[in-house]
């Protein structure tokens, strides 16, 4: 149960805007860790920095004993570090099946192994199976979110970054998505979860970090933070 992802004192800028200020945190193998924070706190920026879509000004990100913060995004995914980006970002002109195929883009372990994972994903997300030849753009928001998760699973990730997977979904669907995340984690995938829905996130997470205007304000066991007065006021609304 060693450290899988370790973010060390990172700083990220958009031009002159200092979006992430000296942020450090870590995720251990097998954990679900959640990063909660208000709009504009820098959650998505942190996720993009980990996946290599944004360059760091300073600091370092290690993953499975390797420094990944200087690596290009398309190489990071090959290490089994996948991301379900904010806003789903499925390829709307491609069919459900083709989107999942894109998820397996980096894989070279043969048609059979990939076919097995298609079955696995369709079993986990049965709604996708019915819609496999439908263009992704015609799916509902919830279905698109499932597709985005399925697509990320198609690369056989060791670790999954999820950026607000519950955004814009009905309460019932939110429950379903969180159940899927738990299932994925039980199957051995380490999870870093960014959420506005702090209650649900703290419910399934082992540990949590609170991000506020680009800095980590609090950290601890999820149950501990869920009972913290400040957290309750700011993020749980009670």
């Amino acid at each position: 149960m060693g450290e899988m992802l370790s973010v060390k004192n990172i700083n990220v800028y958009y031009g002159s805007i200092h979006a992430i200020k000296d942020v450090s945190f870590h995720v251990d193998e097998g954990e679900i860790v959640t990063l909660i924070g208000a709009n504009g706190a820098g959650k998505t920026t942190t996720m993009h920095a980990i996946s290599g879509l944004l360059k760091l000004k300073s600091g370092e990100i290690d993953y499975c004993g390797q420094i990944i913060s200087k690596m290009e995004a398309h190489k990071i995914i090959r290490l089994g570090l996948a991301q379900v980006p904010e806003g789903r970002r499925v390829f709307s002109g491609l069919t459900v099946q083709q989107n999942l195929q894109m998820g397996a883009y980096t894989r070279r372990d043969g048609k059979e192994a990939i076919a097995n994972d298609f079955d696995m994903v369709y079993e986990l997300l049965p709604r996708l199976k019915e819609r496999r030849s439908q263009p992704a753009g015609t799916l509902s928001g919830g279905e698109q979110q499932m597709l985005a998760i399925g697509r990320a699973l198609m690369c056989k990730p060791k670790m999954l970054l999820l950026d607000e997977p519950s955004m814009g979904l009905s309460p019932l669907l939110v429950k379903e998505i969180f159940k899927i995340i738990r299932d994925v984690n039980r199957n051995g995938v380490t999870v870093l979860l960014v959420e506005q829905n702090a209650k649900m996130a703290l419910d399934i997470a082992n540990r949590a970090y609170v991000l506020e205007t680009g800095t980590i304000k609090m950290e601890g066991e999820a149950t501990e933070l869920a009972n913290n007065i400040e957290v309750r006021k700011a993020y749980l609304g009670c």
Partner: peptide, 24 residues
Amino acid sequence: TPAGHAMLAVSEDRGAAQLMGVNV
């Protein structure tokens, strides 16, 4: 072809394509 799909993916969403492992 995979290269063709990569082209379609990049044309739709460069960032998402990178997250799939496409070398833009």
